[in-house]
Every structure is written in structure tokens, then in C-alpha cells.
């Protein structure tokens, strides 16, 4: 893992090791780049955990203070993104505890709507359509597809949203997502599955 992560190119084409060194050296431009890249998903993730936008922004700021103070100890055993999001989720959990709230990533256990799509013999009741021209720029009902997708992600239940941000958007490894959120791999897969199918249904509605 350490060897693989040394050569990862995750920050806008810049070698992660050099980027981390610049952050550790107090390079303001590197900090601005890291903040531009990671702060929006950090706030979205904290909001999914805390269910409060103002608290989420404060927690992200607290996390940045921890990140900058501890970046010198980052040894590349995980990706930089996984390390950053783990600090963020720890900060969000501390905040939730201070506010007297439990953080739970259990998801209620409702199905994903797929079971009803099949007949008794396991065949599609209605054949899925072939989507044409699924591009981020495509305009539907006054918004592009990417904006529709973002809005649909914002409407997901919090636990699904948290997994989708880390695994689906940020591309963390499955094990990194489980560690950051403190959930089992089985739970993570169920949440990712439900979140993706909710998004697929939304795209299907838009394409129809």
C-alpha cells in the first residue's frame, strides 16, 4: 500500500509526495490548492454527518487546522485524500458528541427498488432503455445533467450520501471509506448500491 500510494497522482497531476511536502513546508499556494480541491466535499460530508450546514463549515475549518498541524506526520500509508477525510470525519464525530448527538450510518434497510423490476422468473418486467448522450453538459429542463446529478446526491439519505461522496466522487478505496466512516465493508456496499440505484433512477427519469 505504501509503495502504491507514493506514486499516486491525485492532486491535479502533481505528484502527491511533492504536494504533501509543500503543504508541510507551509506553502500557501499548496494550501490554497488543497483547500480548493477538498474543502467543498469536506463540507458536504460533514453536513451529511451533522445534518447542519453551519456546523459542517465550522468542522471543516477545525479539520483544516488539524490537517496543517499534522501533515508533517503523513507518511503515505493511505492516500492523502483518505487521510484528510478521516481527520474530517473524526472532527465531525467529536462535534456530534459535543452536541449530544449519535452518529449512525445505518440506513434503515429499505430496498433499492430493483426487486420490483423483475417477474417471478427473474426477467425484466420492463426492459431498461438505452440512454443516449449522457454527457455532463447536456441540458434538460434548464439545468445540465451534472447539476441534476448533484441535486439528486443532495437528496440522498445521509449515510448513502457520505459513502457516495467518498467512494463515488472522491474515488477512495473501499477499505479507506470503511475506515473513515467506521462502517463494515458489507454496510458500505449496501449503501453504495442504494445510492447508485437512486441516481440511476433519476437519470432514467431525465432520459425518458
Amino acid at each position: 500500500m505504501a509503495k502504491a500510494s507514493k506514486s499516486r497522482m491525485t492532486v491535479e497531476g502533481e505528484d502527491e509526495g511533492r504536494f504533501v511536502a509543500a503543504l508541510a513546508a507551509g506553502d500557501r499556494a499548496a494550501f490554497a490548492e488543497a483547500y480548493r480541491r477538498y474543502n467543498p466535499p469536506m463540507v458536504r460530508l460533514a453536513a451529511a454527518i451533522l445534518r447542519n450546514q453551519a456546523s459542517a463549515e465550522e468542522v471543516a475549518q477545525d479539520a483544516w487546522v488539524s490537517i496543517l498541524k499534522n501533515i508533517g506526520g503523513f507518511e503515505g500509508r493511505s492516500s492523502l485524500a483518505a487521510w484528510i477525510f478521516t481527520i474530517l470525519t473524526n472532527a465531525a464525530r467529536s462535534r456530534a458528541r459535543r452536541d449530544g448527538r449519535q452518529v449512525s450510518f445505518d440506513d434503515g434497510g429499505e430496498g433499492n427498488g430493483l426487486a420490483a423490476a423483475f417477474d417471478g422468473t427473474g426477467h425484466w418486467k420492463e426492459m431498461p432503455a438505452l440512454w443516449e448522450e449522457v454527457t455532463p453538459e447536456r441540458m434538460i429542463a434548464g439545468r445540465n445533467l451534472l447539476q441534476h446529478v448533484s441535486a439528486a446526491i443532495d437528496r440522498l439519505p445521509e449515510a448513502q450520501r457520505a459513502v457516495l461522496i467518498l467512494r463515488g466522487q472522491q474515488g477512495l478505496e473501499a477499505a479507506e471509506v470503511c475506515a473513515a466512516l467506521g462502517i463494515s465493508e458489507g454496510n458500505m456496499r449496501v449503501l453504495l448500491h442504494r445510492a447508485r440505484h437512486a441516481l440511476r433512477r433519476e437519470l432514467d427519469r431525465l432520459m425518458g
Binding site: R36, R37, N39, P40, P41, H123, W124, M127, P128, A129, L130, W131, V134, P136, L145, L146, Q147, V149, S150, I153, L164, G168, Q169, Q170, G171, R196, L199, R200, L203, D204
Partner: peptide, 25 residues
Amino acid sequence: KGCDHFIHQMRQTKAMIRASAALPD
């Protein structure tokens, strides 16, 4: 054909989720 379309939809959904991470910051 139905499953072929479905798997295609899932790949497109995955790609759009990934692309949505790069909304203008």
C-alpha cells in the same frame, strides 16, 4: 439486450457521479 442496457446505464451513472465531484469549485 435489457441487461446490456442496464449495465451500460450503471457505468454511465458511475461516470456521472465521478464527474459531479468536479463541479466548479
